[in-house]
Every structure is written in C-alpha cells, then in structure tokens.
Design a binder for these strands. Sequence first.
DNA 1: GCCAACGTTGGC
DNA 2: GCCAACGTTGGC
Length: 154
Amino acid sequence: MSFWLMKSEPEVFSIDDLSARRGMTTCWDGVRNYQARNFMRDRMRIGDRAFFYHSNCPEPAIVGIVEVVRAAYADHTAFDRRDPHYDAKSNREHPTWYMVDVKLERKLARPITLDALKTHAAGALAGFLLLRRGNRLSVIPVAAEHWKFILALE
DNA sequence: GCCAACGTTGGC
DNA sequence: GCCAACGTTGGC
C-alpha cells in the first residue's frame, strides 16, 4: 500500500463537502498537471491512503484521511466544453487526464497545520515534497515513515 | 531545442 | 492582494 497527500481548496471542495457526499465518496477530478496525473494513473492503487489537505486558505492543513476506492479512469470533465476543466486535447479514445475515486476514512481529531509540519522540515519530515519551497504538486507521494510520523502529530 | 512570455498555484 | 515558483506555450 502507498501513501499520498491530495490538495483541495476548501472554498472549492472541503473535507466537509466530502463528508456530505453519498457514501462519503467523490471522484477526484480536475487534476491538470502531468506529474500529478502520472502518480494517480500509474501508481495509485485501490486501498492506498491519502491525506486530505486544505490548500490556499487561512490555515493550510491536513484535515482528514481518504482511501482510494477506484483506480485511475478518464476524467470526463475534460470532455465537457462547459466545464472549467475542459481540455480540447483530451478525448474519450485517448484521454489526457485521469481521476480516481476516494472515500473519506475519517476526519482528523484536529487539523495538522502546515506550520506544525514545517517544524519538522529539517528533521523527521526531511524530503517531504509538501515542504519543498515552491511546491505546486496537487498529488504528492508520502513516504511510509513520514505518514506514520505525521499521524503521530494528531 | 532554446527561452521569453504568460498563466496558475498557494503561502503569506 | 501580492508575489515567488514553476509548468506550459509558442516564436524562432
């Protein structure tokens, strides 16, 4: 099993939005970055776990844990001309963009803030891509040791 | 294939 | 709202 971190802007789609979904499950659409896509398409498996991270908001933080319940399949929002994530170069025969389905496992008892994570940037969390300066990846692999360490911060 | 211009991300 | 970082685009 692999571990991940997936970013979402809470004003667009928050952990509570996920919690309110039927089956607490959603498709993770709208990823339009090749590196993030490759992680989802080539390396994510059913049963993998991911931190649900709130980005671009007053308190950036890990706020929950989700489980991958469907492996990568074509992101249909790329085919819809009226969708903000429409991309003319993707089509059903040869999709450019993919998504997975994730299900909320649980909200954290309290958010683990980016500030708290940064405290360990030079120590236990050295190498964690989220803490790399200028990081803009929306789907990030998390080393098993990092996963365990972060959860202990809860 | 280089690289300047441009758009997006995301912390602050 | 600002701006640094960085990915993408497109002219050459």
